[in-house]
Design a protein around this nucleic acid. Structure first.
Lengths: 155, 155
DNA sequence: CTGGATTGGTACGATATTCTGACTATCTCA
DNA sequence: TGAGATAGTCAGAATATCGTACCAATCCAG
């Protein structure tokens, strides 16, 4: 994974690639939200579980969909969903369209966790917006949303 | 981890939070670069190793710095750097400023890997730029760079 | 409408990743 | 100089992730 396309010999700041530039704020938010969640009593969610959980669609998602979206194997996602299910965050229901498949849905406790983290996310986004200003914040969201069209494996 | 701040009841696309919006392209790039790297003969680098490797400064970084930047514990980073060192990607040199510390530097094979991936990264960024157009691409980089000021634990 | 290919998911075993707690050596500074 | 902070390591345990191999339901070409 390359980071710096140009490295000055003097040690001055170098240009980071867009990927890493995106990962830095993401990781910061992820960490902060997870910490807040733990403080709010949801102390049994792990990072890996959260990364899968957040991709669950409002109408329920199939395991395969989640795996593709998160770029993980279906075994890994199955493993994580098992834990989320045992902890009461999600539930599995049969998919009426395909008897092989089951839909993973957000369960009551999962919905509570979503509510709990919504405030923190809003707070972080507000902090970011304050730093960037409204125009740049809007541009950022706009560009990222557009970028999703060609980078989200399950969009 | 909350994703959707508003969920329409009809199943239409909902608003994702900025964090996830950043993670999606990042993950896509990460995967593509790592695959290309593996195809180019650097088939022993893992994702976790790469995530640490990419934070190494041109002048060398301390373990603690890497840990803070990557938001991992120093034990974890030490473990990963050990592997990178054994595989020839990095080397540890004593830090002249502090005899407790050692500087992790990119070694020859690491530099070769950087060169190998630079092309892929450029290609991906070009693809993104083509999709977004020059203006939005510049705005994206600008906003992300600014955001780094308040989200990079080691900036 | 049937048999082969595809798709959704699970089972098992092997690694890889990450953390907590405890410890040593060195450094800082009042 | 001595108390606390900092850089890093060691040991052990819990999590996460993958590869290979399966099964069952569905899809599709003929």
């Amino acid at each position: 994974m390359v980071v710096r396309t140009k490295v000055s010999s003097s040690g001055a700041e170098s240009e980071l690639n867009l990927g890493l530039l995106m990962f830095i704020p993401y990781r910061a938010m992820e960490k902060e939200v997870l910490d807040a969640l733990a403080a709010a009593g949801f102390d049994d969610v792990t990072l890996a579980q959260a990364r899968v959980f957040q991709r669950i669609n409002a109408n329920g998602s199939r395991l395969t969909e989640l795996a593709e979206a998160a770029q993980l194997t279906k075994q890994t996602v199955g493993f994580l969903v098992d834990q989320l299910e045992r902890a009461g965050y999600v539930e599995r229901t049969p998919d009426p369209r395909d008897r092989r498949a089951r839909l993973v849905r957000v369960a009551d406790r999962g919905a509570a966790a979503v509510r709990a983290s919504a405030g923190v996310v809003a707070e972080i986004e507000a902090r970011w917006a304050e730093h960037l200003g409204p125009a740049r914040t809007a541009q950022l969201r706009e560009a990222l949303t557009a970028l999703r069209e060609i980078t989200d494996p399950y969009a």
